[in-house]
Every structure is written in structure tokens, then in C-alpha cells.
Design a binder for these strands. Structure first.
Ligand SMILES: [Mn+2]
Ligand SMILES: [Mn+2]
Ligand SMILES: [Zn+2]
Ligand SMILES: [Zn+2]
Lengths: 146, 146
DNA sequence: GCTTAACTTGCAAACGATTTGCATTTTTGT
DNA sequence: ACAAAAATGCAAATCGTTTGCAAGTTAAGC
């Protein structure tokens, strides 16, 4: 989604390109990981933007398909820009909380099998992984108790 | 998880087998779909159980690995009994809300690829699908506009 | 640019799912 | 049955998120 296109995308949906929206969109496109509403709010540096406005805009951007909402089993949701040609999932470290992208999408390969098994037409999916990152791997010692 | 084993499983974790727990567990094992705390609460027929107790017990059962918490993009979480040898995901109809099991797990096949790509040790994952169920399929007519 | 309608925002209050403090009750292990 | 540990009911608190409304901004046509 070129920075230029977002305005058109918004206009098509009768939405304005406001300062808050532009800044939120910028923050999301720059971030390497999905951000919480609060994190986004704290990164807003220009004119004052209310947290409620952040929520309203995240919802608006999500509704028109520019932003994806992600549940990583935290107390809040995270949001990330949907970039063209990118289908991304995530893996979060259960020890340190680090979040990385997983570009591998397993679901698309199996879409047919899932549709066949369920009889549903598959439209969308959530896939998030949890594990232990390289830095948090337990150190192996010679003793290998139970 | 045989009905008998749950008591032992609880005991191993210093948890009691209370009437509320037994009843909640029974409700979960009988349900064909994951239930919300409120749905569970409404299905409790025996002696009075407070909704807070339902929440406390769902958390307890989840913490000791008997119950799984599921996010289907609703305002609440759903819970389901973890039965031995079952690895299940779900697909929800975006039109009528119907929920079906997806016994197919795509992630396990790709676990190695994901671990290789991310460097993480994969421990767990969430995978939920969304689509349109057979009853809600749009009726096809001869006209096929854009 | 000017004008007006449509859309958005700040602010404070409301919401709703979930959690928690505490006195009381139930369950457990002996 | 008994004491200790764990769980419960109840009411209040929490906290992420939403909403009403008056005021401010943006979009579109002159
Ligand atoms: Mn995918
Ligand atoms: Mn799976
Ligand atoms: Zn880590
Ligand atoms: Zn349906």
C-alpha cells in the first residue's frame, strides 16, 4: 500500500485522511511488530491525539481492510498494517515476549482440505504461534533429569 | 481424559475436585463447540454457582492443561475441554455464527519449517478459521456481476 | 479561497468482560 | 472427625474498549 494510495482507499470508503490517521498509519508501517493501541498512542508525536481516537481509527482502518487485528493472548489486541502481497503470521516467545513474523503460511496450502472437511467456504484465518526464542533457549547441561 | 482421571489431575496440582468444577467439566465435555463463561454459567443446573466461580475454575482448568481458551473474534473467550489425542481447531461462519471443529491441523506438518524460519522452538499455536457455512452460501444465479 | 455538509476529534462518562478482597463454606489428608 | 488448605458467594474493582456530544477538521463544489 503506497503512502499515496491510502488516501484513495479511505476516500472510496467515505473516510477522511486526517492527521491522526496519517500518523497512525505511518507508525504501523514502520513497526516491525504489531502494536497495541497504547503503544501506538505513546508513539504519536505530532499534535495531541486522544486514545479514544486511536481506537476509533484502528477500527476504521481495520474495517476498510488496511489494518489487521491480532490476538497474541495478551490483555489487549495488537494491530499491524496490511501490506500488499504480504500474508504474515507471528510467533511470540513465551519467556521474553519477543514477537517475530512468520512469513510461512500453512493454511493456504490446506485451504482445500479444510473446506472439504468443514463444508465451509474459507474466507480468513488467525494463526499465531508461541514458543521459545533463540535467546531464551534453556541451556543444555550434561545432566538430563526428567 | 477419563472422568476418573480429572480428580487425579487436579490433585497433582493441589486443586480440589469441587461440585462446580465437576459440573463445569461435564458441561465442557458434552458440548460440541467451545462455550463462553456465560453460556457455561447458564447451563449449570445443580446448586447455585457464581459467575466469578466459573471464571476462576476455567482459569484453573486452563492452567493445569485440562481446558483450552479460544478466541473467535468475539467480545469474549470460549473454552473447551482438552481431550486426549485430540488436536482441534475451529471454523466459524461469518454469517450465522455456527462453529464447527476442524480436525485437520496444518501447523504440525509445518512445525519444522516454522522453527527453521523463526529460530524459535515451537510450543503451541492458535489457529481459527472463518468462512461461510453450507447453509449460508450465497445462492448462485445466472447473473455474475463484478 | 469560500461555504456547507460530512466526517472526525477531545473529553468524560459508560460499558462489559474478567478479576479480586474477604468472610464463610467446602474439600482434603490424616 | 479435625485442622489446614482450597474454593465460593457476593460485591466492588479493574481495565481495555466504546460512546455521546459539542466543537474542530476535512472533503467537494463553487
Ligand atoms: Mn495464513
Ligand atoms: Mn494445530
Ligand atoms: Zn525469548
Ligand atoms: Zn452460516
Amino acid at each position: 500500500m503506497a503512502a499515496m494510495d491510502i488516501a484513495n482507499h479511505l476516500r472510496r470508503h467515505k473516510k477522511s485522511l486526517t492527521r491522526a490517521r496519517a500518523e497512525i498509519w505511518h507508525i504501523l508501517t514502520q513497526s516491525e511488530k504489531p502494536l497495541s493501541p497504547d503503544e501506538i498512542h505513546r508513539r504519536l508525536t505530532g499534535h495531541k491525539v486522544d486514545l479514544a481516537t486511536v481506537y476509533r481509527n484502528l477500527r476504521a482502518l481495520k474495517d476498510i481492510g488496511l489494518v489487521r487485528e491480532i490476538d497474541l493472548r495478551e490483555a489487549f489486541k495488537r494491530y499491524e498494517a496490511i501490506l500488499p502481497g504480504q500474508h504474515v503470521h507471528h510467533i511470540m516467545c513465551q519467556v521474553c515476549g519477543r514477537i517475530e513474523k512468520v512469513r510461512h503460511c500453512v493454511v493456504q496450502n490446506m485451504a482445500n482440505a479444510i473446506q472439504k472437511e468443514s463444508g465451509f467456504t474459507l474466507k480468513d484465518h488467525s494463526l499465531e504461534c508461541f514458543g521459545i526464542c533463540p535467546s531464551c533457549q534453556p541451556h543444555k547441561t550434561k545432566a538430563q533429569g526428567t
